[in-house]
Design a protein around this nucleic acid. Sequence first.
DNA 1: CTTTTTTTCGTCTCCCAGACGATAAACATT
DNA 2: AATGTTTATCGTCTGGGAGACGAAAAAAAG
Lengths: 227, 227
Amino acid sequence: MGEYPPFAVTADLVVLTVRAGELAVLLVRRGIPPYEGRWALPGGFVGIDEDLPDAAVRELAEETGLPEPAGHLEQLGSYGRPERDPRGRVVTVAWLALLPDLPAPVAGSDAASADWVPVARLPPGQLAFDHDRILADGLERARAKLEYTPLASAFCPPEFTVAQLRGVYETVWGTHLDPRNFHRKVTGTPGFVEPVGRSTEGERGRPAQLFRRGPATLLHPPMLRPH
Amino acid sequence: MGEYPPFAVTADLVVLTVRAGELAVLLVRRGIPPYEGRWALPGGFVGIDEDLPDAAVRELAEETGLPEPAGHLEQLGSYGRPERDPRGRVVTVAWLALLPDLPAPVAGSDAASADWVPVARLPPGQLAFDHDRILADGLERARAKLEYTPLASAFCPPEFTVAQLRGVYETVWGTHLDPRNFHRKVTGTPGFVEPVGRSTEGERGRPAQLFRRGPATLLHPPMLRPH
DNA sequence: CTTTTTTTCGTCTCCCAGACGATAAACATT
DNA sequence: AATGTTTATCGTCTGGGAGACGAAAAAAAG
């Protein structure tokens, strides 16, 4: 067997979190050409003996500094326009990660500085390579998945309140949800959340019951976006 | 720049159609090692200057012999376990195609024989490489997408009846649907189908109104699977 | 002690899905 | 020509869930 065209394969990450009421994406400032000084999605080359999910997990750990946070990671898609990287023919396998707000600051292991950037304040067309499109696809995927999966809890710490979960939906969708109907829906959908037995203390207002993630993998019926 | 690990990149296709009341997938019989004599998904190497969707469209045209049928093509995902191809490190970008039943027989342009194989009669573990998993993922994607998109019409000819469309749902899902509720749902969902003004002739029973695809890209509310 | 804030429980209405009766319009059979 | 068979299409009824709110409960803030 013989002559295949040689490609480079990378793993790029769309890492999303909700912090301070805003949906934020993890970006790195590029220190070398091409696109020097521009924001880019974190990522890197896949090792020659490395499986694709392993490469994504490795890059995520390198970039966030955490071993394996209790978030969610799934393949988003592959992008390989011949001109997308001026250095050569590079196909990237993009991944979508949803993480709870990290208490530890993001310490980039390599020299490039990494930071959370609120997506609402990110002007389009500013990212390196075709990362604008990859980010847009990741955002759309995340918004859609909140409807029919319990993945909103991936943005929350292990124990959370219904109001926290509602805040995730409101931030990701950019909409307002009725607290009473949301409460009924979440607690009434089997397997979505499980009561932990304790309540919050020291917060404002009436203490809220604490929940953890339920075993459900699909929401039946789904949580529909308003309008 | 310089030293990236070299990969080969292929485009593999899960091409589905509904024929004779069965869901069938397009498979090729491999004529050379590895996996000689086994069924495999059609596919081939991506050209060094070729965009990924272009490679998929090209492979689809080569394998079906048709220029660009009125079906649907979307990226399914990428698969790249290091041991998935004994010839070397090959990452494949898999695509899902939904086509109407082709009047022309499938004439494989290359020596390998291609044929439609009903998925129900395909024992698991029989496909080359990791194509069993890719096929399973493609089937699951297709079944799920019928719920919230009008993509069932991609399995139909340009003009079709409500009963034909119902038959697609029933064979893909393997369920029975009530003809009256289905008719109300399809004709009542805006943008799903558009009446063409004519009716069928010479068929059994009362003539049925002909429809064509509507402009909707998403079904609101979705067509839910029973149970 | 009152006000404010937030959680949580109910109620009411509308829409939609599922179950199913009834009618319409063709062909097949006698 | 009359009748039966098949399939399409329209209607009706009922139950569950979503959206819009009212109201009570349980804490902190003033």
